[in-house]
């Protein structure tokens, strides 16, 4: 979650979305907009999870295939997919996901820290877990998904 609202509110709003039949979510405060799928221009020699760049009203927006980032198979990329434009710190990026499902408002107290399971790449990207109507929803740590340094790339 972003720093500015960690302690200040007891409620948290999450944008949930589907990725390989699993439900994930991000803090809605970091979501700038949601866009339909457009073909991304691939970046040579970029990490596998970097799908490429798209034209977001005149600016060049990198698109991350969240599925690959979390260690799963790439998202197919067709008209059903959506790109969630998020901002983390000074960085703006698009997250390619299967579909956006819901906006959930829940008390912060219902978020649980995930248990430690070292064998999982996706684990370090998950900040919290919660159960909504029987579905487990993973809350992503965007600062881990989109590291702000350049060391990881290239």
């Amino acid at each position: 979650m972003t720093e500015q609202n960690t302690q200040s509110t007891s409620e948290v709003e999450l944008l949930s979305f589907r990725l390989a039949d699993e439900e994930y979510s991000v803090d809605i405060m970091s979501v700038r907009e949601i866009r339909g799928w457009t073909r991304a221009t691939p970046l040579p020699h970029a990490p596998a999870h970097v799908r490429g760049v798209i034209n977001l009203r005149g600016t060049v927006l990198p698109v991350v295939d969240l599925s690959v980032r979390l260690g799963m198979a790439p998202v197919e990329g067709d008209a059903r997919n959506v790109i969630i434009v998020v901002q983390v710190g000074s960085q703006t990026a698009g997250l390619l996901v299967d579909a956006v499902s819901d906006i959930l408002a829940l008390p912060r107290s219902e978020l649980q820290t995930p248990p430690e399971l070292a064998a999982d790449t996706a684990h370090s990207f998950i900040e919290a877990l919660t159960i909504v109507e029987g579905r487990m929803i993973r809350v992503l740590d965007l600062t881990a998904v989109l590291p702000d340094d350049t060391a990881e790339a290239a």
């Binding site: 970046l43 040579p44 020699h45 970097v50 760049v53 060049v60 990198p62 590291p147 350049t150 060391a151």
Partner: peptide, 13 residues
Amino acid sequence: KGLQRSYGHIPGV
């Protein structure tokens, strides 16, 4: 248009 710095230096681009 600049490419975002988050991908570092892409050789040749």
